[in-house]
């Protein structure tokens, strides 16, 4: 560091200082999962930009922050949105916010899905539960240049039919963008005509051109373990598999140490990783 006299440090940018955004709209996707659309509420002119797969830290006055992945279209300015599972105090508070209420937003943070690398390849997207949220910006990005990619497959699993996110969109995607959508649920009553079973079992019903396919996976860790085992069994090379990891993200800037996963900080080295970078730890317990 520079040796300067006392008191000569310039005013610093505080990475922990959020910008202000207000709630534009809240849409309930399921009983316990909602999407909030945000708009800027401060004087900064800069547009909020992000890459698919990145996340923000959302701050609710007096309650704290929560790390939440961005679920909106990165190429549509001014439409920032998060799809949030209501599970803790901060997410519950977010779910109760009304139009115009202001929250703090820090971000975007983390690595992104390899949209560029998918050029010319088939793309197999595998999502479990809320894991579809951080993959939606990836799907939007693929649709934007649909002809640059081969097949797009979306394998998506949820707990029950009522827990499925983006139900209307799922149908539109298959119609408008030629996405092969396979949806499965863990349990159901007799009104559901779709697949019932775990996500990895869907691979039974598809054929993949292993060498020309890139896979992007996001869901609960155990679901990703079984999914990746299945993907590898299909012959897709490890370096064509990407996944998004979850840990306790507290500061999002590599200071607090909570999100460590072996040598990686999920917040800044992830959350999206190429599988070879973490495969040695992936099946170890309590890393």
């Amino acid at each position: 560091m520079n040796q300067t006299a006392v008191g000569e440090v310039e005013k610093l940018v505080d990475p922990m200082l959020p910008q202000l955004m207000s709630i534009r709209k809240t849409v309930w996707e399921t009983d316990d999962t909602f999407t909030i659309q945000l708009e800027k509420a401060d004087h900064y002119d800069a547009e909020f930009t992000f890459l698919p797969g990145q996340f923000n830290m959302l701050y609710v006055f007096g309650m704290g922050e929560s790390a939440l992945s961005i679920s909106s279209d990165p190429l549509k300015p001014g439409t920032l949105a998060h799809t949030i599972h209501r599970v803790g105090t901060v997410t519950t508070a977010l779910s109760q916010m009304k139009r115009g209420d202001v929250i703090g937003v820090r971000g975007p943070y983390g690595t992104n899905w390899p949209i560029e690398k998918a050029n010319g390849l088939d793309v197999c997207i595998v999502a479990g539960g809320i894991g579809l949220a951080p993959l939606r910006p990836a799907l939007y990005s693929l649709f934007r240049r649909r002809r640059d990619y081969g097949r797009i497959l979306l394998l998506y699993g949820a707990r029950s039919p009522l827990d499925l996110l983006y139900r209307v969109e799922l149908e539109q995607w298959s119609k408008l963008y030629d996405v092969e959508v396979l949806v499965t649920v863990d349990r159901s009553d007799s009104t559901w005509k779709g697949y019932i079973g775990v996500v990895p079992s869907l691979f039974m019903y598809i054929k993949l051109d292993a060498r020309a396919t890139i896979a992007m996976v996001c869901g609960p860790e155990v679901m990703m373990q079984y999914t990746i085992a299945e993907i590898l069994r299909r012959g897709i090379p490890p370096e064509q598999i990407y996944l998004s990891m979850e840990r306790n993200m507290n500061c999002a800037v590599g200071f607090c140490g909570h999100c460590q996963y072996g040598p990686k900080f999920i917040c800044k080295d992830g959350p999206v990783f190429g599988y070879p970078h973490i495969s040695h730890l992936f099946e170890k317990k309590e890393i």
Partner: peptide, 21 residues
């Protein structure tokens, strides 16, 4: 669909079996 009657909870679908299975 593989169905099991779960008493008062009615009919539950726990799995589907598809092509090739």
């Amino acid at each position: 669909a593989v169905e099991i009657h779960a008493g008062h909870k009615g009919k539950r679908r726990i799995q589907t079996v598809g092509p090739g299975e």
